[in-house]
């Protein structure tokens, strides 16, 4: 069964940005923060109160898919939860960024202004391999509500 990413042990995060840089470096072939599908942000200052990891939660019934006005731009993964964006079809100029607006996790999907595409995690697991403290894990999805 394909797995999805879970931010399992957030309190362990040391804010090294290795997950962010690995995602951009390996998936996007770029040294960047913006192009990564995963983001780390501080809560109340650098390290005093801790960190938040912002990333797609790999929904089994992703609300970002039905609201997209561009046919074929975003679709659910066949199994395992989460979505895949077809970059040749997705065009952020032609829509109102409905996927971004609909997702209840602010920042889990964002628009990259250079390539005008929705950037969202595709559950590849690269980030888990560059987390030094085991914050991120891949696990088989279980239904919620």
């Amino acid at each position: 069964m394909p797995k999805r990413l879970r931010v399992a042990f957030l309190d362990r995060c040391v804010g090294c940005y290795q997950c962010v840089l690995a995602c951009a470096r390996i998936n996007e072939k770029v040294l960047s923060i913006d192009r990564a599908s995963i983001r780390v942000k501080t809560i109340g200052g650098y390290g005093r109160e801790g960190f938040a990891v912002v990333v797609c939660r790999g929904c089994l019934d992703p609300p970002c898919v039905p609201v997209c006005p561009i046919e074929g731009a975003i679709r659910p993964r066949t199994v395992g939860g989460g979505v895949l964006v077809n970059r040749s079809i997705c065009d952020a100029i032609k829509c109102s960024h409905e996927c971004v607006e609909t997702c209840p996790i602010p920042g889990a999907i964002h628009i990259d202004e250079d390539i005008q595409n929705a950037i969202v995690c595709r559950q590849c697991s690269i980030c888990t391999k560059f987390c030094p403290t085991g914050v991120l894990i891949m696990e088989e999805p279980t239904p919620g509500f």
Binding site: V14, C16, Y17, Q18, Y46, G47, T133
Partner: peptide
């Protein structure tokens, strides 16, 4: 209370 890293460093030497 926690350990923290500088950017790009997986060591987490900053003890808080």
């Amino acid at each position: 209370g926690r350990r923290v890293s500088c950017n790009t460093c997986p060591v987490g030497c900053i003890h808080v």
